[in-house]
């Protein structure tokens, strides 16, 4: 049974919570594993310092092209393994901060761009048909996708 593109992107928005470090569901698999018709990209493009900033994102190869899903809020407080507080490192982007400060407040903004650049690589993000990676995310992840 096929599902709509919007529903599929919504599923990938939630899937970002369950991959990588601090996954909400253990054992779903990393790079090369499948979710529906999408193939999960490996974590090798995750920027250094991502976990320290509470940031996570994953790319997928899908029938719609490349999709990047940014993880939303999964840590309200500081957890030295799960990552920094999404409130101080992520929500603060909504207050107009950009991460360029000594305390790393809003640090997830720069990592969002870094991950996007890493996925796109040296290729132009646009081709003749206006294609570019689809970005999606749930909650804070949706905010990061909108940057």
């Amino acid at each position: 049974m096929t599902i709509s593109k919007d529903l599929f992107l919504a599923l990938l928005s939630l899937d970002a919570y369950n991959r990588g470090y601090g996954a909400g569901i253990d054992g779903l698999g990393g790079g090369g594993s499948k979710i529906g018709t999408a193939t999960v990209g490996s974590d090798e493009l995750l920027p250094d310092g991502a976990q320290a900033a509470g940031f996570y994102a994953v790319s997928y190869d899908t029938p719609y092209g490349t999709v990047i899903s940014y993880r939303g809020t999964d840590n309200f407080t500081y957890d030295d393994v799960r990552g920094a507080s999404d409130i101080t490192k992520g929500w603060t982007i909504g207050a107009g901060l950009t991460g360029e400060n000594p305390w790393g407040i809003a640090a997830q903004s720069g990592l969002t761009i870094d991950f996007y650049d890493a996925v796109v690589g040296d290729d132009e993000p646009y081709d003749l048909y206006g294609q570019k990676p689809i970005v999606t995310g749930h909650s804070l992840g949706g905010g990061l996708a909108g940057l």
Partner: peptide, 25 residues
Amino acid sequence: PYPEPTLGKSEDIYSPIFAATVNHG
């Protein structure tokens, strides 16, 4: 110092080599 870096890089991140599935973390 960071847990994110993988031990290897893949030509295709959707068919990663084993080293690219193992992190410093």
